[in-house]
Write a protein that binds this DNA or RNA. Structure first.
Lengths: 342, 342
DNA sequence: CTGTTAGCGCATTCAT
DNA sequence: ATGAATGCGCTAACAG
């Protein structure tokens, strides 16, 4: 055991280290900064004292000095419990770490007030940049003047009236190709399960859906369009209604994995009651999900990489931190369409 | 538009607000602190100036003052991309927010060196507490002396030699009951798919598994025990080996959802080649997973709530912050065993 | 090479 | 009810 010995319940300061080492605080500071212009002998005494006291440099005090950055990036996410946003956060953290920054994380729960509060706290904590999955609603708190020039990157969704860097998925293209896959399999009666219209991605995915239909000379049948499901339970209810139609759809395009899973759960429930799998619609899902290939009906996946989305958001932020002023950038991350498979 | 007007690229300070409002910095500070002993008329002038400048109180400077807490909790997680840890982090954030604290989040990737670096950075940032899913390996950086009394809560896993608050799952009990469920269904040839033995939870779940077998007068068959799978791919490989035995198991206990999913994927692949579902083993899975009820073989779930685990970890931390010294606490969160179902 | 001075933004203490 | 002085921990800038 050769850990620190003279430890205490309070954080030691440079001063205490200096006293123990018999030098001035500046010598400690310089040693910790890399040891330029400090005799090796002095450095050793300082480092010994640091070890003995278990000293940590107080980053808070350090960041207070003029021109010093906090080393913090504020990240606000709508729902951490959604695996997609967990992976997104991981991607951000990964790049931030490469740049020596730490992540301040907050969950907005799709609540604009909480988002506002979070952003405000982040700014008060002197974050160097913000990465945000916006939750909609009032967005005054995202105005560049309010942020005093703190760079902001939006992910997944755009905020009208805010001109800033954005990383999006290719929602339209992905939904288009996913729907087209169903059309090419011969389906003509295709339902749409999606988010509330106000949600930016939901709108874009619906657009892609209609584009594909249009190409086959079809228009969406209002009876088959259900756009208000935010969770698995409501998606399942919507699916139930579709299946109970006198003329149910032969395929369903689900604009996210919550809706796809809800739909499949309803199918599963009916199968357990003895129904025949052949009678149920095929599913296309924007977002991959585990075990899709074991489903009793054909499943098409519009796949993408949330972790890479997070990485890209962070990259946008750090290039802006480094390069300074430039026009806003909008990056669209690709999607891939494939049958459910391992 | 009635946002701030005299905005600038730098953060305004109390001083600037004071000047604009024609008062002293102290009047600004007091107003922002709640307005005690400040005439309403003064308060209004201050608040107007705050709005006009887009002023945010500098939390960094605030925290520097003696006796002031940083309002920050350091959270280090092994793998944010795992949905379970995303939910865990959400639970922590939820409680932390209730207590007015913010989360500093880091991903360790099961790497002890990164964990060490993270903890050290967190301490340097004056976090008020640490919540950690330990990644194993060297643990000197978790010694209470090193942390200078910063409270530490460990989640999911224990670290030998570190006497601190811990939240665990009832790994043993859950694995016991999950295995028993298989035994009661008549299975006698039960395989085990699990984590590397060094992982604390893996060990505990194996213990529960053997306890259940023991109760039925059985001992684990070494041929049927595979304990080195950390991801879905390796789990699938292990399952393949089991199915190819001359006498394959009639049931499989998977000690986490990665292993359960890998096993099911292998079954799925063989079904697609025309095999009969009736010939495959039943599965019990520690950890729930979506769509378990649509699987082609019977699935038993050992269910638990990672979000509640996170909440409980945070609660332990905050009670310690409030109540100060007390003996270390160990909380075991319950698990529930049930057939796969909606 | 090393030490002293000074100040970052804020709020506690003490005057007024 | 308000303001002035002071210091939190740290490190540029300037002595020496």
């Amino acid at each position: 055991m050769n850990g620190p010995e003279r430890v205490s319940d309070h954080m030691p300061t440079v001063k205490e280290v200096a006293t123990l080492a018999g030098v001035s605080p500046m010598t400690v500071s310089r040693t910790l900064a890399g040891g330029n212009n400090v005799r090796p002998q002095m450095q050793k005494r300082v480092l010994d004292a640091v070890r003995e006291l278990g000293y940590y440099r107080n980053e808070t005090a350090r960041a207070l000095r003029p021109g010093q950055a906090s080393g913090l990036i504020g990240v606000a996410i709508t729902n951490l419990a959604n695996p997609y946003y967990g992976s997104f956060a991981l991607g951000v953290e990964e790049i931030a770490r490469q740049y020596g920054r730490r992540i301040l994380l907050g969950n907005t729960g799709e609540d604009a007030a909480r988002e506002r509060q979070l952003v405000s706290d982040f700014v008060g904590r002197q974050v160097e940049g913000l990465i945000l999955v916006p939750s909609g609603g009032n967005t005054d708190h995202l105005q560049p003047e309010i942020l005093h020039g703190i760079p902001l990157v939006l992910a997944s969704r755009i905020v009208p009236g805010i001109d800033t860097d954005v990383v999006l998925l290719d929602d339209i293209g992905g939904a288009y190709l996913g729907t087209k896959d169903l059309l090419e399999a011969g389906h003509r009666r295709i339902a749409f399960l999606g988010n509330a219209e106000s949600v930016f991605t939901g709108q874009r995915r619906y657009t892609g859906f209609t584009q594909a239909l249009d190409e086959f000379g079809l228009v969406p049948d209002p009876v088959l369009v259900k756009r208000d499901q935010q969770d698995i339970a409501s998606a399942r209810t919507a699916m139930k209604a579709l299946l109970d139609l006198s003329e149910p759809p032969t395929a369903v395009f689900a604009s996210n994995n919550r809706n796809a899973i809800g739909a499949l759960m309803e199918i599963g429930a009916r199968l357990r009651l003895g129904a025949d799998a052949a009678g149920f619609p095929a599913i296309a899902s924007f977002d991959d999900f585990e075990l899709a290939e074991l489903m009793p009906v054909p499943v098409t996946i519009v796949d993408h990489d949330p972790r890479e989305l997070g990485r890209e958001a962070a990259r946008l932020l750090f290039t802006r931190l480094t390069d300074g002023a430039m026009a806003s950038r909008e990056v669209e991350m690709p999607t891939r369409v494939h049958a459910a498979r391992e």
